Computed example of a mutant assay.
Amino acid sequence: MKKKRVSITDIAKALNVTPSTVSRALNNGGKVSEKKKQQILALAKELGYRPNPIARSLVENKTQTIGLIIPEFTHHFYSRVLAGIESVTSKAGYQLLICTSNEKKKQEIKSFQTLLDARVDGILATICKKNDEFDHLQEVLDSGTPLVLMDRICEEIETSYVISDDFVGAFQAVDFLIQTGCTQIIHIKGPKVLSTSFNRFMGYKEALKKHLIAFNEDLVFEGNDPELAEKISACLKSNAVDGIFAYSDYLAFEAFKVLKNEGISIPDQVSIVGYADEPISSYVTPQLSSVNQKPFEMGAIAAGLLLNQIQDPETPLEFKSLKTELVLRASTKTFKEIPV
């Protein structure tokens, strides 16, 4: 049989005092003698009293919980974002309620509603890639619940953002490929609706422009194309491709497989750079050069912004863009390896 939870009323009856007296003693309030306070605290400890968080949240209009919505757990990127968030929220005494959208719009909408129903004090979220309507995000703001978006931008929603500088990250990656001798560089794009896809594509084009290399749309492919491998293979046969820049490390791995099947040496014939610096970048052979987005820092900064808004609703909205880092490994040539 389930043991009955000890309440303030139980303690009050045992000591012949009012429940309000017990409440003041437990919460270090005034108008309770030190002797009576110690009696109440001692009995509460003896009976195993624990505060009711739901009752307290109704009184204080705070639940000490923060909602988090991310597309998935399987990507190392999001697990590092989560670690960054927890490093801040746990110290501040907040618990996380975590939902995943699995990159599906309906599931994302349901997750937001679930968190609002749970009366969370604020929400951190990365919008899914299959989202083109954002009424559910506006509903969060209209409810007065603080919201901070991470990694992906939604121009329709006026709130705080923490992102990585994808334009500069992509520019630096492609600029490096060009400086190490590449001139015909394939770009494998990300999902069309995402700001990250657009910014990385623009960074790719800007690097070509800097070096006076004409943009060739025949070298650009959609990452979600089911015939991606076949199209890359055909491109390699009809163009003097010597470099590949992919939207993600996973798309770079797809290019890896095509090059291996075609007997093309990496990086002697074709250099490859991915994005996000996932663990897979160290597992493939040769190891993959990639762009690190600083996900731990992203999560920690986003959590800090949200806590500031929870504590002071008048806190100005902020837009934080984190510097990326190009991590060089064996899938790209070094400057010393450039043919003279």
Rank of each mutant, 00 (worst) to 15 (best):
E217W: 04
E278S: 09
E133I: 03
T18F: 12
K320N: 14
I66M: 03
A173N: 03
T21M: 13
E158Y: 12
S7M: 05
S164N: 13
T180V: 15
R50A: 13
E254M: 12
E278Y: 06
A255G: 15
S164V: 10
Y94M: 02
T18R: 10
P53V: 04
D218P: 09
C235V: 00
T126L: 03
I244W: 11
Y161S: 00
F176D: 07
L305N: 05
F296S: 07
N224T: 14
T114R: 12
L26C: 09
N61V: 01
F77L: 09
S7E: 08
Q95C: 08
S197D: 01
V220R: 06
I85W: 11
Q107A: 07
I264C: 07
I266N: 02
I157C: 06
E103W: 09
T196P: 01
T315Y: 10
P316Y: 13
G169M: 04
G190W: 11
C99E: 09
L317S: 12
D165W: 08
L147V: 08
I70P: 09
K45D: 15
T285H: 15
S101C: 02
P316E: 07
S195Y: 06
K36V: 11
A302K: 07
K35P: 04
K3A: 07
S87V: 01
I98P: 08
V284Y: 03
S321V: 13
T145E: 03
D151T: 05
L141W: 08
L305S: 04
L115A: 05
E108L: 02
L141S: 04
V193D: 12
Q311C: 12
Q172S: 10
F253R: 09
V241Y: 15
G223K: 02
P51A: 11
R80D: 08
L306H: 01
A12I: 06
I109N: 08
K210N: 02
I186N: 01
E278V: 01
F73L: 14
G203E: 05
I66D: 02
K336H: 15
V148F: 11
I310C: 06
C235M: 01
G223I: 01
I66R: 03
P316T: 02
F176A: 07
S281V: 07
T334K: 13
V327N: 10
M150I: 14
F112D: 00
E139P: 03
A170K: 02
L149E: 01
K3Y: 10
V241H: 14
L177P: 15
K36F: 07
R80L: 13
I244V: 15
I185T: 12
V327A: 06
L322Y: 08
R56W: 04
I338W: 08
I11F: 14
V340S: 15
F171V: 02
I232L: 15
D268Q: 13
M1S: 14
I188F: 05
E103F: 08
T21Q: 07
N61Q: 10
A300C: 04
L236E: 01
Q311W: 14
P53Y: 06
L137Y: 15
A83F: 11
K91N: 12
K36T: 15
Q309I: 01
N239A: 10
